[in-house]
Design a binder for these strands. Sequence first.
DNA 1: GTCTATATACAGATAGAC
DNA 2: GTCTATCTGTATATAGAC
Lengths: 207, 207
Amino acid sequence: MSNHEANPIENKTSKQSLILESASELFLGNGFEATSMDQVAINAGVSKQTVYSHFGNKESLFTAVIESKCKQHEITQDLFDPARPLHDVLVDLARHFTDLILSDEAISLHRVCIAGGEKYSQIAQLFWQAGPSWLQAQFAHYLELKQADGEVVICNPKNAAQQFLYMLKGEAHLRLILNLDDPVQPAQLNEYIDDCVTFFEKGYANQ
Amino acid sequence: MSNHEANPIENKTSKQSLILESASELFLGNGFEATSMDQVAINAGVSKQTVYSHFGNKESLFTAVIESKCKQHEITQDLFDPARPLHDVLVDLARHFTDLILSDEAISLHRVCIAGGEKYSQIAQLFWQAGPSWLQAQFAHYLELKQADGEVVICNPKNAAQQFLYMLKGEAHLRLILNLDDPVQPAQLNEYIDDCVTFFEKGYANQ
DNA sequence: GTCTATATACAGATAGAC
DNA sequence: GTCTATCTGTATATAGAC
């Protein structure tokens, strides 16, 4: 009985994805510096040399991990259908946005990008463009259309979009990313989100 | 001529503060993991053993640094004098708050607390209580008084305080903490801040 | 208290067999 | 491509002289 699989190509890609998965777990869980290539290899069930064969060095592996994770976390743009009324969009956006950014994986990803951004600014740039920048632009564009319709009075849609999104991020996100013992409770969070929607509507209402 | 100083006690405390200053620079600049005790010693102009004599181990030294830095960055509570009109307080708060949180040292401190919070949750707790938590409470209290005066209509002052502060933090802070190449320009920031004040006043106006 | 010298461990990365 | 064994540097922490 031979030692190699029936399809060597599938075997190759399988090992590569095993390594990527292992590295994702460790980098996102413990950060860049605290993760060793030995751990990555053991966790993936391969030898260290195999890791180096596929990804060259630690930085390249790290970049590959961040890149793949950024692609996974994207909010659908269907949400910003211009035909939808403002209130519905605000409520949906608030719900989807908070669900996304407060998830365990998004928090880990954000934390790692902050820590790693100092030395590897490419990482932070990837995260910024795939995440915050993209969403802000989409939402601002939607608000422009609503402004044109006369539904709202917004002199600067880009600013308004930011105000809404960063307001929502707020305390719940900060507590999680600081890893505090007591996160914001779901009931309190829901009340806060509703408040934000109401606040936004009144602040930018057309009289 | 003897080698020791006239006052050995002053000499001791001087070395301790030298070490603390050196460690602050390195921890805030490069993070916990990327800072070695050797670097701290060299940067302070003392031997490594002296560092250990004063602070025991790396974690203790780190905690001491964060604790001292948190104490330095505190916003005066004179700002929330109940006699002051809302508009003045909002403008002053917005200016002082953004100045503080966008400063180099505050960004570094924030970054380090996020990175270190995973393993040493005491660090993040220190930061949270001395910074965000304290300011939110002060501002919420002021808003309660204004609500009682009938100047504004705020059903939940705690939420309103958060909305204003986290909205201000916004993109400028995120870009800095991610260490992106292109930070928000001062002119654009000022415009955004003014927008936030106007938005808040309209959103919570008493008709 | 402060120094120099050292013990011990583990990191990133590579050599060479199969 | 994949593995085991190893090189080389550097980290935390300590021992012992002064």
